[in-house]
């Protein structure tokens, strides 16, 4: 695995555009459908997710490579403690969200009033856990720098997708959508078209 700015750029573009966590990886669909009515809300949610995803990605990486693997090695099998992985991941994410919320509320009150409202919802955002699991599954993220860039790029990709969707939905409000398609159904159909557009990004990460 080579290092360098090119590799990092490739990882970033791949996860933010080509393999966008929402539109190609189907992660974080609940907030994508639920919090995409208005652009400012969607953007706020996107910022929160990017922030928490980056931190969680780094912390879960440190847990696996800093605790589980060394302790497992001491016990004779590097995978000896992997049964604790999922429990540890979800606990880390839940406590990360709490910490970030307290920190932002205490030190950046204006930021909190603007973006903080979605923070408690993020624990059950599967994009966060999903990103941590993907980092854990792929051999190329054995390296902390790659893992960090992946987590950050994943968050940016989420922000991009949800903000784009909100932009479309603000216009849909004025359109004559059949009654049975209103709400989630039309949102999914629009997401399908967005996903189709994102297919066109294939190849730029390389």
């Amino acid at each position: 695995m080579t290092l360098g700015i090119g590799t990092l750029m490739g990882i970033f573009l791949s996860v933010a555009l080509v393999n966008n966590l929402v539109l190609a990886g189907f992660l974080g669909i609940c907030p994508f459908l639920g919090v995409s009515r208005k652009i400012d809300m969607a953007f706020g949610m996107g910022c929160d997710v990017t922030f928490v995803m980056t931190i969680s990605g780094v912390v879960t990486w440190l847990i696996v490579h800093g605790i589980l693997v060394p302790v497992g090695n001491a016990l004779g099998d590097p995978e000896a403690l992997f049964f604790l992985k999922y429990v540890a991941f979800i606990m880390v994410i839940a406590s990360m969200v709490q910490l970030v919320e307290m920190y932002v509320r205490k030190f950046f009150p204006p930021l909190y009033t603007a973006f903080g409202v979605f923070l408690p919802l993020i624990t059950t955002n599967c994009a966060i856990l999903g990103a941590c699991l993907l980092i854990d599954m792929k051999p190329e993220y054995q390296n902390l720098l790659n893992a960090t860039v992946f987590a950050f790029g994943g968050g940016i990709g989420f922000m991009l997708a949800i903000t784009l969707m909100a932009g479309v939905r603000e216009h849909i409000r004025f359109s004559d959508v059949p009654k049975c398609l209103q709400g989630p159904a039309i949102t999914l159909l629009v997401a399908g078209i967005l996903a189709l557009a994102f297919l066109g990004f294939a190849g730029i990460g390389s």
Partner: peptide
Amino acid sequence: GSGTGFVDR
């Protein structure tokens, strides 16, 4: 071995 593909590795 592995490397970059068109979509992913």
